[in-house]
Write a protein that binds this DNA or RNA. Sequence first.
DNA 1: GATGAATGAGAGTTCATTCAT
DNA 2: TATGAATGAACTCTCATTCAT
Lengths: 222, 222, 222, 222
Amino acid sequence: MAPNKPDANSKRSPKVTRKPKRSTTGSLNGERARDREVIDVAIQIFWEKGYASASVQDVADALGMLKGSLYYYIDSKESLLDKIFEDSHDDLMKFTKEATDGEGAAVVRLTRFLHDYAMWTLTHLERAGLYSREWRYASDSSRSSLLEQQRYYDRSLRTLISAGQDEGDLDVDVDPRMASLFIWAAFTGIPDWYSPGSKMGPEQVASAYVEFALRACGARHP
Amino acid sequence: MAPNKPDANSKRSPKVTRKPKRSTTGSLNGERARDREVIDVAIQIFWEKGYASASVQDVADALGMLKGSLYYYIDSKESLLDKIFEDSHDDLMKFTKEATDGEGAAVVRLTRFLHDYAMWTLTHLERAGLYSREWRYASDSSRSSLLEQQRYYDRSLRTLISAGQDEGDLDVDVDPRMASLFIWAAFTGIPDWYSPGSKMGPEQVASAYVEFALRACGARHP
Amino acid sequence: MAPNKPDANSKRSPKVTRKPKRSTTGSLNGERARDREVIDVAIQIFWEKGYASASVQDVADALGMLKGSLYYYIDSKESLLDKIFEDSHDDLMKFTKEATDGEGAAVVRLTRFLHDYAMWTLTHLERAGLYSREWRYASDSSRSSLLEQQRYYDRSLRTLISAGQDEGDLDVDVDPRMASLFIWAAFTGIPDWYSPGSKMGPEQVASAYVEFALRACGARHP
Amino acid sequence: MAPNKPDANSKRSPKVTRKPKRSTTGSLNGERARDREVIDVAIQIFWEKGYASASVQDVADALGMLKGSLYYYIDSKESLLDKIFEDSHDDLMKFTKEATDGEGAAVVRLTRFLHDYAMWTLTHLERAGLYSREWRYASDSSRSSLLEQQRYYDRSLRTLISAGQDEGDLDVDVDPRMASLFIWAAFTGIPDWYSPGSKMGPEQVASAYVEFALRACGARHP
DNA sequence: GATGAATGAGAGTTCATTCAT
DNA sequence: TATGAATGAACTCTCATTCAT
């Protein structure tokens, strides 16, 4: 038998991702030619069929390549979803930060935040829709950070409402926690019904939604 | 809810459904002993894992039977989902009808309708959550009638808002179509955050949500 | 958005093995009809093609079932290998224990041990061959216990040789550690050349091998 | 080594090998700059992971090149293994020839042969280990010549033992055929446990192993 | 009513290999 | 010499579904 010694241990090494080093040349961030395309197509497919129902084959078909080839660009179906969410998060984070860290009356910042969020949703329907509808299918690690993020957005919104109340611009009878949940769900629902090429443009919808939200919070004169 | 829009259409088709089995004779309404239990457990499982991710095995496990045995009670996984939705629809339809066909001021009927819907959602969290989150996975025929229903709810809500405006109780500046979508999405989001055993009881949440909705519609004195 | 709440967490639950409960009725140990057959056929296939090269398909083919069906009996290809090794280990352990715990002169127990091991190998050629040739492919957890076992056999053998020297029956010039490795490798090699239906019967081979081993250890009069 | 016996035959066949490419012109013997490096790295990787489990990617990684690039140096994964074995064979052949064709007492030549083989094994652990552990995965044509070779080594060893018996230096009770198999397996097992940097140097191990072998054959005074 | 065994299709993923640049 | 993109076949594994008992 002989005690230990060289063995196939290394095979089960922690899934060493072996993506070609991709020199930093090329478009910014070392992205390969079709990296962007892969993500964009995946967003489309996942949104249309639902992440769980969509197959890697579906995505590959839409890209005009074999499903095996797709793995040159991705590590797994799950990681593809993760990557989609990362991008969305980056966008969202930007104007959430602006709202919370900014100067000026809370109600103004709230208005701005809601408007930005609505506009982002309206101009990135599939991406935004996926984010709120399919975040549950993200990888374990990604999911926990998504939850973290969502809590952060929620807290930011709640804080702004509270501040607005303190500054006398919003009705103090309103429970900021519930108002925040109410508003967030309403906005998050946009991708479920809006379609570009509608009679109403994004601006119109965003403005209307912001007004609904402010009214719900008992804004003096929205 | 929201009318039409992207769905998981393309997937379904292959197997023609046959199997007339089980005549409606037998105990009343053709229900067998554990029919109810099967549905209730399925609701739980589908809600927890998502319909597409949940397996028939998962449901059978929760029922303490083998998956083969489950097919004594169901025709297919899809039909099980359909059946879940039927029940939900029946509930919803009842108070939608009451609101639209009822007498009295529109704003009163609107209030009643929203309150009923909120209460139903709050007391049937999983079922209600499934209805709005997973309707896309219903069978082709079921899905189209679900869309029909959703359009009906939406129209009912819109009509009530319009009527409220006509009767001078709601702000005419509000677009009933968008207000309806806004409110519906907000209410529909309840199962995503509420959990029984919360500090707030269903009544409290329902009342708050109704008030948000009325305020958003510019109600004079909610 | 809404903070946490029910989600698809459960999907990634620690691989809940869901094997049907298999009532303890039937043959001993709750084994299903073809459980034994599956293992025996797998031993054959893995031995012939090598574990890494053999496919689940190959095993299923040999069993006359579809590869999908095979998963009714096994959890994974790896676990099938693990199970094969478990059985081998049980056999080996028995006469290793007898040798180490037994009474009598060490050289007698050594002789007995080697003879038993040779006989077991000769009468379970494929199983024994797999054990020494493919243990590296066992699952992480299984592999570490296999290593443990191998170290145990090695230690047992070494101890017997040492004791034989102490009792004056084996040449003290021999290094027990190396003798043990030498002998073990020699015996382990049997499945690489012996085939049933050879001119020499298992008894003959076993006896010859034991004699080689004792001579190598400098036994006075083997 | 052991003659014939179960092997991974059945698998190979599909792709007809073509590609004559790279004429033997160029640097001496047609070797390109990194040809040697490629082989050495492959030996390492194949030994660590096992040929079947190691991927071309693994080898390319270790070489710091992309797997596509590796094909400039090799024709196929299988041919890479073949080439490794060729080298080993050349080494082995040299001292096998010396032993069989040489002059002097058989037992002396036998001693020399075993010592050389042990030393070669101990100083080329991975290569030697691969040779005995993975020869089954060589290409069809290569495998049959490997079998031929193994039979030749075995026959040489057997012949030396027989001659030693005839010359009165080895016990005639020993069956040369089985002794040969016994000894060969024992020596072949060295790479499974020895590691350079051990307390015992190659010389010590080789000497001990030779002594074991001679004793097993009943040498008068080893 | 329920079991246990099997099916067959398809899922995600890996990998040896090719080839234009 | 080497890269990067793609291929296509095979692989492990899952799952909805069926059916004789």
